[in-house]
Design a protein around this nucleic acid. Structure first.
Length: 336
DNA sequence: AAAGTCTTCAACCGCCGGCGA
DNA sequence: CTCGCCGGCGGTTGAAGACTT
């Protein structure tokens, strides 16, 4: 038994809406409200199907729609949410007041997606292309700030293998350790994003997830310059604990398992900055910080191959640009 | 100036799940 | 349990404008 189409195609208008049609729809909804979209066009005197009316109203005529260019903050929020939720446009739209899922979807496909690709980032996985990564640069000075969020065993292994590279043993090990390091970073990123999403008051503010000097130029590669937890870890921890974790949300997240929600083992409240990593930076203590520690990225200064893209006033990199599943790569979990 | 190409985004399509009969 | 209706969702299309040659 076939389904009856949502509307009869015969005699019903399609294509762009005229001003007159818009006005009819607006007038009707102002008078009677919306609901029962199937009957609405008939009652409103429109030669449209209900679906078309609903779409026109929700995507264009609704009075609370914010039209115009997306703000910097909105774009960062979209990237952040997309890295966690994927193509759940309605879920993303629900956190961007005045923006519709259709609008966000279009903006993603026409602007953000292309930009990420230009930057060598897979817009689906938010991962960097492997050939743009290089372990020696990851281990370079500025990147050590992020070491505070990593598993010390991984760092040891990374350092060990890095030294082996000097013996011309650059091989798959490098890629493996790159994955490990990236995953550690990403766990931190997801923890931060999760904490923010689960804390509705104050409302989610993507600017809290970013900070300055997101990336630094390093020869021909892109690397995060730092991951800066501006909240003390203790504060973050309390934040996370006070939030309600729903099963639904957990299942929506990428497959990080329960590690993402592990209780952080905080030895002290720490604050450090990329420009001066020695400030309040106690390496032994921070190295003991597990992967679930908070992290923060920013996007003020992004460079690719030595070329700033600031002139676009849009330099975005997802917080989840390092997205790898170690278990997928190695088939082991002993490092985590 | 004209033709061709690219970009944008409103609108459509088909599918899905919830719900009630 | 099945079926149809309805609203919602994500993917896709295509017209129109912008840009390039």
């Amino acid at each position: 038994m076939g389904r009856i189409p949502c509307c009869e195609k015969n005699g019903l208008k399609r294509g762009p809406w005229t001003q007159e049609e818009d006005q009819k729809l607006i007038d009707y909804i102002h008078k009677h409200g919306y609901g029962n979209w199937r009957l609405l066009p008939k009652n409103a005197g429109l030669q449209r199907c209900g679906k078309s009316c609903r779409l026109r109203w929700t995507n264009y005529l609704r009075p609370d729609i914010k039209r115009g260019r997306f703000s910097f903050d909105e774009e960062e929020t979209i990237i952040q949410l997309h890295s966690i939720l994927g193509n759940k446009w309605s879920a993303i739209a629900s956190r961007l007041p005045g923006r519709t899922d259709n609008e966000i979807k279009n903006y993603w496909n026409t602007h953000i997606r292309k930009r990420l690709m230009r930057m060598g980032i897979d817009p689906v996985t938010h991962s960097p292309r492997l050939d743009l990564l290089d372990l020696s640069s990851i281990l370079n000075s500025s990147f050590y700030a992020s070491a505070s969020m990593m598993n010390p065993e991984i760092l040891k292994l990374a350092a060990s293998l890095f030294s082996s590279q000097e013996n011309h043993q650059i091989d798959q090990n490098q890629q493996v350790i790159s994955h490990l390091v990236q995953t550690q970073i990403q766990d931190s990123i997801h923890q931060e994003a999760y904490n923010k999403l689960m804390n509705p008051n104050p409302p989610f503010d993507s600017s809290m997830l970013f900070n300055q000097s997101h990336f630094v130029e390093s020869s021909e590669n892109l690397y995060p310059s730092s991951f800066i937890p501006e909240f003390g870890f203790q504060q973050q921890h309390e934040h996370a604990q006070s939030s309600t974790i729903t099963d639904d949300f957990v299942h929506q997240l990428p497959s990080y398992g329960n590690d993402l929600f592990m209780e952080p083992h905080i030895s002290e409240t720490s604050t450090f900055h990329s420009n001066n990593i020695n400030q309040n930076f106690d390496l032994p203590s921070v190295l003991s910080t597990p992967s679930s520690s908070p992290a923060r990225l920013n996007s003020n200064s992004t460079y690719i191959n030595g070329t700033s893209i600031e002139d676009e006033t849009e330099s975005y990199v997802s917080n989840n640009m390092f997205e790898f599943q170690i278990s997928d790569i190695l088939g082991v979990n002993e490092f985590m």
